[in-house]
């Protein structure tokens, strides 16, 4: 537990509703535990209403737990005086690229975070340059955000979070509103940040392909963590995934059906590439 950067302990949360009869409150989070280690890439999977976005908003004190604790770098999110220190450490990127860009010029938007921190202009300039370089958007720094593609806007939003120099980046379905090429762009950038800068990443998604590249996958349903482990282990529990209304990756599903037809495929096939290799081996063996 000591080595984790973000520690979520037994957290429960319910959104306030008009109807407050205690019995009927539906918990958006129900005794959730999660640890994010420095430099780790964690994918959180779940259907709409599974509580994954609610969990994300607990990681930088946008929401505070009703029960349990969230510790970021040892700081409790419920302590108000540490609020800004926590938000400096955990950057956040949201689903809709349009609704998180504040300024009418790319570089001024990236500067928004450090400006809020009250940094001197020279330092802001440097942070903005670094953040834009890290997402490959330096050449567009004087553009108007509404003229960018969805993927580019989302990279600007990531740069905006990076300018605060966080240790962890939380992305709440960052690709849900993008086309496939935009999705690829964003995923590439985030994976590079994770590899090259050692940035811890919490990637919330309902796309299996994106989760498959994580170090660890967490499956949420009904406000609870249902499955947890490396992608290979999690995705091979096909029946479980279906029970949580999640798609099974195509390769896993194909392998499963082949096995049912009597093809002796090994367990743990995750990608199409692996399936092809396994089938080729079978053929050369016979």
């Amino acid at each position: 537990m000591d080595e984790s950067y973000i520690a979520v302990n037994q957290v429960s949360f319910a959104y306030p509703t008009a109807d407050t009869t205690a019995e009927q409150i539906r918990l958006a989070l129900n005794h959730v535990n999660l640890a994010v280690r420095p430099g780790e890439f964690v994918a959180v999977l779940g259907m709409n209403g599974s509580g994954k976005s609610t969990l994300a908003r607990h990681l930088n004190a946008l929401l505070l737990p009703r029960d349990g604790t969230v510790l970021v770098d040892g700081m409790d999110t419920r302590e108000e005086k540490q609020l800004w220190a926590i938000r400096d450490r955990v950057g956040m990127v949201f689903q809709n690229p349009d609704n998180q860009i504040v300024a009418a010029v790319v570089e001024e938007d990236v500067a928004f975070g450090p400006e809020n921190q009250g940094r001197p202009p020279e330092e802001i300039r440097q942070r903005v340059a670094e953040a834009l370089a890290a997402v490959g958007m330096s050449h567009m720094r004087e553009r108007a955000p509404h003229l960018l593609s969805g993927g580019q806007k989302q990279r600007v939003a990531i740069a905006g979070a990076l300018a605060l120099r966080p240790a962890c980046l939380v992305l709440d379905e960052p690709t849900a509103m993008l086309d496939p090429s935009g999705r690829g762009e964003v995923a590439d950038v985030v994976h590079r940040l994770n590899r090259e800068l050692g940035m811890a990443v919490v990637w919330i998604t309902h796309f299996m392909e994106e989760a498959a590249l994580a170090d660890r996958v967490i499956v949420m349903a009904d406000g609870q963590v249902q499955l947890e482990g490396p992608p290979r282990t999690v995705f091979n529990q096909a029946d479980q995934l279906r029970a949580f209304r999640l798609d099974v990756p195509p390769a896993v599903s194909a392998a499963e059906r082949l096995r049912a037809e009597g093809v002796p495929l090994p367990e743990g096939i995750l990608t199409l590439q692996e399936l092809v290799e396994a089938l080729c081996q079978l053929r050369s063996a016979t």
Binding site: D88, M92, V102, A111, F112, G113
Partner: peptide, 26 residues
């Protein structure tokens, strides 16, 4: 809806009003 989401995004980036804020472009 946009206004609501934008407010959340601004908070997440440490916006806390004009006091103590600096500007990149002077």
């Amino acid at each position: 809806r946009r206004a609501d989401e934008l407010a959340t995004a601004m908070e997440a980036r440490g916006y806390r009003g004009g006091t103590g804020r600096t500007k990149m472009k002077q």
